[in-house]
Design a protein around this nucleic acid. Structure first.
Lengths: 336, 336
DNA sequence: CTGAAAGCGCTAACAC
DNA sequence: GTGTTAGCGCTTTCAG
């Protein structure tokens, strides 16, 4: 193993000079910096993480707390995780995965052992049990998702409330007067997952504002659940012509289910979704959607955390404005 | 931050005694061990990772190299990752995620910086570019997947060759004489992904042994690809009655596509899959399948790596025997 | 069975 | 602009 003293000897300087040349924390003459860099390259030196850590320094590791609770759509979560890892690498950091124990134990451990310099927290609930720990501030953090009381925290998310409104606005503009939201699985709402709740708020508020008849239905995964919800909607809301889906794996089965009931999309039913663009674009019928920019959110979270770690000021809450992309699944009412 | 000296003072012993009491690396009287443990609990002490690392010790971190290449089925990969994290925690280790740069850079970095004590390598190719690095042995490793030349490496995987054979054996026993394998996307075979290639070998060998007519077709994702492959199979192999699918997201679309061509499963076509059990069980028609035990593989990999790290001997290659579960999708030929 | 002390590889005062 | 030195928190000799 090649250590800093090896590099120092090779470059004909002291270890501290090597350290400074590498960190740039004090001015070094071009001549010596070049010699140091050459030595580093020739020897293939990389600072030992343990040594740096012991010296009271950053570990260059970010933790990612992703609970993997039931009802979350795995590919979307994974997309987040991958974008976090990629962005972290771009900032010369690695990523430690925390999954179990709902994250509380993990965050505490990472803070105490100083295994990571900061943590990115996913799947945030309105009242999240991890918040006290994060507020205590022993570990810098960024949340992907916005809890009920975000003061003192750094949060970033899509503006799901506005996203819900945007979907309804779009349907209303197309003349639809009866709309339904087919949401995430019930347990997601039960544990008060922030983004899901916010979307419902936005959906309901906009429907009321437009004086539409509206209904909200959580829905589990699978063809059977899709069929059940479709039948129920048709029965309870015979005049239904607009549907918002906030449940990635359900989009195709739901379209199927409606067709089996004799309702075609978009002929009889206009449908918009809130989901990552690729999901919407590759659905059975390409679906008008508000994009959930998973990759951008992951990247932003990393940027914010890195800024925070270097002591720079960061905004409290960043809400990305929703953007709706029209596709084949929505048409003006009566375009049969 | 509470450090070992705090614990020592509190327990009325020396720091080294605390260290030994915690590691068990030398005999400690019950009395003092109890006092130390009490102090640890009262103060909430957890050994600082940096300090341990600097002292030339293990970091209690395992790296997980998962390339996220195109054509891999994300939920399955994620299932592996989650099971690795869970198993690692059970052994008091954390997990560092390595995704990009095909893993080579990442493995080198982790080895050099001693950020992790070992690495679990996923998505192994027959000739994998990471093998030289792993063989060099600067970082203990376990592969999930078996490359062409596994000597000197520790590997664990489902016996995909036997899995391919088992599917064909099952179909042959049911009287099917013409069988096709609908495989993973083409790029998976192009880069010589070990498990995919092995499955094809087994499929072909068993088909030949049973003197069946057989064909192998890689297939991309999506409804359109499913439809195309179904049409092609029906055209090129009119007598086809047995299909093996090795492509998780394609199972449902493929069944759909066959039905649209007037071929029902299992009425006209018997279908078996190689995939995680939940996928097979929740398909449109519950599918007879050979289970890919993702969770067990992840757990085993961690066990092996931990053994290796503690200097215990480990087997070279562990192949889990395939197990076929009959479901509704396979029936004797001619059971219309 | 336990303590004192040396040292892991690195960084950051403190010198010059 | 660079070197010397004193730690960081921990483990592990070396002594008792």
């Amino acid at each position: 193993m090649v250590k800093i003293t090896d590099v120092a000897r090779r470059a004909g300087v002291s270890p501290s000079t090597v350290s400074y040349a590498l960190s740039g924390k004090r001015p070094i003459s071009d001549a010596t910096r070049l010699r140091v860099q050459a030595a580093v390259r020739e020897l293939g030196y990389r600072a030992d993480g343990g040594g740096r850590g012991a010296a009271g320094h950053r570990s260059k590791v970010l933790a990612l707390a992703v609970p993997m609770r039931s009802g979350v759509h795995v590919p979307v979560v994974t997309q987040f995780a991958v974008s976090v890892v990629t962005a972290a690498r771009a900032h010369d950091h690695d990523v430690l995965m925390l999954t179990q124990g709902e994250g509380e134990e993990g965050i505490g451990r990472v803070a105490d052992t100083r295994l990571a310099d900061g943590v990115i927290v996913m799947d945030v609930q309105l009242q999240d049990s991890r918040l006290p720990l994060l507020r205590a501030g022993s570990l810098p953090s960024v949340l992907i998702g916005v809890p009920a009381e975000p003061d003192g925290l750094t949060c970033v998310d899509l503006d799901f409330r506005a996203a819900g409104e945007l979907c309804v606005d779009h349907l209303a503009r197309l003349g639809h007067r009866v709309v339904a939201l087919v949401g995430s699985p019930p347990e997601v709402y039960v544990r008060r997952t922030a983004f899901a709740r916010r979307l419902v708020e936005g959906f309901t508020a906009a429907a009321d504002r437009h004086r539409l008849t509206s209904a909200v239905h959580p829905c589990g995964a699978g063809r059977d659940a899709a069929r059940a919800i479709a039948e129920r909607l048709v029965r309870e809301l015979p005049a239904l012509t607009g549907v918002v889906v906030h449940n990635e794996p359900l989009i195709d089965p739901l379209i199927d289910a409606f067709e089996r009931l004799g309702l075609s999309v978009p002929g009889d039913l206009s449908l918009t979704a809130v989901c990552p663009s690729p999901v919407a674009a590759s659905a059975r019928v390409p679906v008008t959607s508000v994009a959930v920019p998973s990759a951008e959110l992951g990247t932003r979270a990393v940027h914010l955390l890195v800024r925070k770690l270097s002591g720079l000021p960061v905004p409290g809450t960043t809400l990305l404005p929703p953007r709706l992309t029209e596709r084949a699944s929505t048409v003006p009412r009566g375009t049969a």
